[in-house]
Computed example of a mutant assay.
Amino acid sequence: MTQSDNNKIRVSHDSEQIDLIDLLIQLWRGKWIIALFIIIAALIAGAYVTFAKEKWTSTAVITMPDIGQIAGYTNVATILYGDTKVDINETQQRVINRFSGAFSALSETLSNQSVPEELTIDMAVKGQALPLKVTYQSDSAKNAQHGLAKYIQQVDEQIADELIDDLTMNMRLRVNELQASLITQEKIAQEQKDLRISQITQALKVANESDIKVPQAQQSDNLTQDSLFLLGSAALESMIKNESSRPLVFSDVYYKTKQNLLDIQRIKPDPENIHGYRYVMKPTEPLFRDSPKRSLTLLLAVVLGALVGAGVVLVRNALRHYQPRA
Rank of each mutant, 00 (worst) to 15 (best):
T201D: 11
S251M: 11
E191A: 12
Q202I: 03
D221R: 15
L182I: 08
I240R: 11
Q225K: 15
L182V: 09
F250H: 15
D221W: 13
D226S: 15
V249E: 08
L261N: 03
N208A: 03
P271G: 02
P271V: 04
R266K: 14
K256R: 12
D194P: 03
D226E: 15
G232T: 07
A203L: 07
D263G: 12
K268R: 04
L228A: 05
Q216R: 14
E191S: 14
D270P: 04
N208I: 01
Q225T: 13
N208K: 07
L248V: 08
Q219M: 08
N242V: 12
P247C: 09
A207E: 02
I197S: 09
R196W: 02
P247V: 08
I264A: 02
A207H: 00
K258Q: 15
F250Y: 13
T257G: 11
L262D: 15
T184R: 15
L261Q: 05
P215R: 09
A207F: 00
S245D: 10
L204R: 14
V249I: 12
S220W: 03
D194E: 04
I267D: 07
E243A: 15
D226Y: 11
F250P: 03
E237W: 08
L230T: 04
N208C: 00
K241Y: 09
M239K: 13
Q202D: 08
E209F: 06
Q216C: 05
L262C: 02
K205Q: 14
Q192D: 07
E243P: 05
V206M: 06
Y254M: 00
Q265V: 03
I212Y: 00
A203M: 08
R196I: 00
L228E: 11
S233C: 01
K213I: 05
L195G: 15
S251P: 04
K213M: 10
Q218A: 12
L262H: 10
A189C: 04
F250G: 03
Q218V: 10
K187M: 13
L228G: 08
Q219K: 12
F229L: 01
V214H: 07
Q185T: 03
